[in-house]
Amino acid sequence: MNKVKVLFFATLRDLAGSKSIELDVPAEMTVQGLKDRLAHDNPKLRQAMETVLVAINREYAFDATVLPEAAEIAMFPPVSGG
């Protein structure tokens, strides 16, 4: 198992109802696998998982990426700074 931390920002935090969670996930879980797991655990997140941006250890990550050990994962909508 792999213990990861998932941070939620902006609309994702509103939907998740918390700023961050810790999860035990299988060793070879991908970003897509994590999205499926979160959508299953919290139906409010289901629709957002289709368009969410994901970062792993502060770099953008994509569906096929395997979650590294003890990763810091962040989920958020397209950015709107400036």
Binding site: F9, A10, A55, Y60, A74, F76, P77, V79, S80, G81, G82
Partner: peptide, 14 residues
């Protein structure tokens, strides 16, 4: 610089 910031820097506004 400002165009890239608006595209890739993780900041949001309400």
């Amino acid at each position: 610089g400002i165009d890239r910031l608006k595209d890739v820097v993780p900041i949001w506004k309400k």
